[in-house]
Design a binder for these strands. Structure first.
Length: 320
DNA sequence: TCATACGTAAACACTC
DNA sequence: AGAGTGTTTACGTATG
C-alpha cells in the first residue's frame, strides 16, 4: 500500500449526517487551518467551485501544462480565478505559517511531485466543476487529474481504481447515462449531485486549510417547535449550537435521479455550516432544501452573511 | 476501544 | 478477445 505522507483533515460533518452529535463536536471556535498543508499552497480552493460563469477556465490547463516543479503549487490557477460569487471572502491568512504564500524558491521546492493534499472526492469534484458542462467521463476525470497534478503522471495506476471506487461509492457524484446517439467511447458521464456541492466545497476548503468552520448548527424546521434561533438572544456566537430535527423539510429529489443516495433523506437533520473569516460569516446548506431567505434570516446573520447565504441558496437551487 | 473517513487492492460483470 | 468502465467487498491506516 502506498504511504500517504499527507495527513488529511476529517471529512465535513455533512458527510455524516446521521451523526449529529459528532457534527456538533466539530465546531471549533477558532480557525484551524490544516497545519499539514504545505505553505506553498495557494489560498483559495473555492474558486473552481464557485465560478458560476460556466466557462471552462483556460489557464487551469495551460497549453504547456504544469511542470513537475509545479507540484502542489500547480493549483495556483485555483486562486487566480476571479470568481467567488460568495465573496466577500476577505484576504485571509491570519496564521503565521501562511504569511508567505508565494511559491517557494525553486531550490526549496521538492524534487519530485508530492501527492496532492486532496482526497479523491475533492479531485473528482474539481475535475467535474472545471469541465465546461460540469460533467465528465471517467477518462476525462483521469486526464484532468493528471494534467493538474503531476504526481499522478507517474503514480501507480491504482489511483484510477480509487477514482472509480469513489465515483461509485460517494453519494456526491451521480452517473448520467450518455445519449446513445451521442455516445462516444465507453462509460457514462459523471456530475456532482447539486445537494452535495456545498459539502464538497467545504471539504475541499478544509483540505486546503483556508476556510474555517465557525459553527455547525442544526435547525428545527418543525412548525410545532420553532427554531431556537428565532430567539433574538440567540446569536451566532462561537460554540453556539442548535440541534433539532428537520421533519418538515422535503428535499427536492428532481435534481438527483437516485434519491436513495441522499443521506439527508433519512437523517432527520439538516446542518448549517457557518464559516467565518474576519468580520464575515458564510452559510453553507446541504443544498436543494426548500429553505428560503426568511428561514435564513432567523439565523440572524449579518448582512454580508445573508448575502452569502442567498448566493448559496441560488447555488443550491433554492427559491427565495 | 470504537466509529468514521479514506486509500488501496481485488474480483467480477458489463459494455464497447 | 481485450480494454475500459462500474460495482462491490475487504482490508489497512489515520483520526477524533
Amino acid at each position: 500500500m502506498e504511504n500517504n505522507t499527507h495527513t488529511l483533515p476529517s471529512l465535513s460533518p455533512l458527510h455524516s449526517p446521521t451523526n449529529p452529535s459528532k457534527a456538533l463536536s466539530l465546531s471549533p471556535s477558532l480557525p484551524q487551518p490544516s497545519a499539514t498543508v504545505p505553505a506553498s499552497l495557494p489560498l483559495s480552493p473555492l474558486s473552481p467551485i464557485l465560478n458560476s460563469s460556466g466557462g471552462h477556465n483556460q489557464h487551469c490547463l495551460s497549453p504547456s501544462g504544469p511542470t513537475d516543479q509545479d507540484d502542489l503549487t500547480c493549483l495556483n490557477w485555483l486562486h487566480q480565478r476571479n470568481l467567488l460569487p460568495l465573496q466577500p471572502i476577505p484576504k485571509i491568512p491570519t496564521l503565521p505559517q501562511l504569511e508567505s504564500l508565494d511559491p517557494l524558491p525553486i531550490q526549496n521546492q521538492p524534487p519530485s511531485p508530492a501527492k496532492p493534499p486532496f482526497s479523491f472526492s475533492s479531485l473528482i469534484f474539481m475535475a467535474i466543476e472545471d469541465s465546461p458542462d460540469k460533467r465528465l467521463p471517467v477518462k476525462g476525470i483521469y486526464e484532468w487529474i493528471v494534467n493538474n497534478f503531476p504526481y499522478y503522471r507517474t503514480a501507480p495506476s491504482g489511483w484510477r481504481n480509487s477514482v472509480r471506487h469513489n465515483l461509485s461509492l460517494s453519494k456526491s457524484f451521480r452517473r448520467i447515462h450518455r445519449d446513445k446517439s451521442q455516445s462516444v467511447g465507453k462509460g457514462s458521464l459523471w456530475c456532482v449531485c447539486p445537494e452535495f456541492r456545498p459539502a464538497l466545497l467545504e471539504l475541499e476548503a478544509a483540505e486546503y486549510g483556508q476556510t474555517v468552520i465557525m459553527d455547525t448548527t442544526e435547525i428545527s424546521l418543525d412548525s410545532n417547535n420553532p427554531p431556537l434561533s428565532s430567539d433574538p438572544s440567540c446569536s451566532l456566537i462561537p460554540d453556539h449550537e442548535e440541534l433539532v430535527a428537520m421533519e418538515s423539510v422535503e428535499l427536492e429529489e428532481e435534481a438527483c435521479e437516485e434519491p436513495e443516495k441522499d443521506p439527508l433523506a433519512d437523517s432527520g437533520y439538516i446542518e448549517f455550516h457557518y464559516y467565518q473569516c474576519q468580520q464575515y460569516q458564510y452559510l453553507v446548506l446541504p443544498g436543494d432544501t426548500e429553505l428560503d431567505l426568511e428561514t435564513v434570516e432567523i439565523l440572524q446573520l449579518d448582512a454580508e452573511a445573508q448575502e452569502a447565504a442567498g448566493s448559496l441558496l441560488d447555488l443550491a437551487g433554492g427559491n427565495h
